[in-house]
Design a binder for these strands. Structure first.
Lengths: 186, 186
DNA sequence: TATTGTTATACTCTATAACTATA
DNA sequence: TATAGTTATAGAGTATAACAATA
């Protein structure tokens, strides 16, 4: 599995930052030959790595993530925040435990996210109807508005990221990827 | 970008560990309904997330990474270690700076990896022929043997991960993924 | 002045243990 | 006894600043 870095490139763009050009995939690579840099770059051979599906899948995912970060910056939403918001939007009253199972997040790591989204006034917790341990999560009106905008942006962003693909190719790609990560055909 | 966790699931399986079943993708999700757990799991709707290419690409990449970690455990190689070893194997005398550019690793983060691989007797540093600042990296005989085994394992592992795909489908998938992460057609 | 390799370090993400309230 | 939510914390990954040696 080729290491292209940027796996955790979903840093929150909140605090003041030094270098964050948005160019995540090529963060530090290819200096651009500023001054008298050696032009004799012998072109490193990475052809074998590029033959691996894992490498290509990761590069593609990271490309889309990088675009996601740029487009979602106005909403201050990381991928995981958008995912949580989406699950709550489409499943009103869902519990934290259910979100963890659906998105494969560990419960301790979800706590802070929910807390932050609540603090931003985007989600609300209501007592669970049958289980007093649990809490049902709902979007506030503000949360619904933000999510609607964010989901629209996500959809547009996906189309932007796949502009080199025809509609049929995108469908094929999605289907084949699902066949990989689901063990069985689908 | 759906958060499926496990982005940095490439933890080194060196020290003694508690829970590491290898089941990375479903680390904590779906408890399996051990005892009297509620069977009324209302099936969280994630259909929108599943329509996003970013989600599917990430899931597929994580699936292959998880398999990679299991199959490469005997060699004690993380994806990034294998990538570095591969680049050195295919580009004898390559410099650290070139590896960083090719694999998109930041120089400070490569230092430890090279140091570790050197300590394991897998790579050697030789003075660069024309630049006394740089060092050319080479595989030792032991490194060559290990890399040969690891690369064979990687190739087998890829076939294993894509056993649900025909040869043609795998070719199509790879081509389409490249079209995504390269801006232009390819 | 710029680049290579490096150290030190901060921030983020991921994972485990353990606690409480409830089932 | 098991589960939902939580706290605290350890560990791994990723990022920047700054330095000495060399170009």
């Amino acid at each position: 599995m080729p290491e292209t870095s940027t796996a955790n490139a979903m840093r929150r763009p909140r605090g003041p930052r030094k270098k964050d050009t948005g160019d995540v995939l090529l963060a530090d690579g290819a200096p651009g030959n500023a001054a008298g840099a050696p032009v004799d770059a012998p072109e490193v051979d990475t052809s074998y790595l590029e033959s691996l599906l894992g490498y290509n899948a990761r590069r593609a995912a990271l490309t889309i993530i990088a675009l996601f970060l740029r487009r979602m910056a106005p909403f201050d939403l990381r991928p995981v925040d958008f995912s949580v918001l989406t699950v709550v939007a489409h499943n009103p009253g869902v519990t934290s435990r259910q979100i963890c199972a659906a998105l494969d997040i560990l419960p301790p790591n979800l706590v802070g996210m929910v807390k932050a989204l609540h603090k931003r006034g985007l989600i609300e917790r209501q007592p669970h109807p049958t289980d007093r341990r649990a809490q049902g999560l709902h979007l506030t009106p503000a949360g619904q508005r933000l999510h609607a905008q964010a989901q629209k942006t996500a959809t547009q962003l996906e189309q932007e990221a796949t502009h080199t693909l025809t509609r049929g190719e995108l469908q094929t790609l999605t289907t084949l990827l699902r066949k990989v990560y689901r063990g069985t055909a689908a």
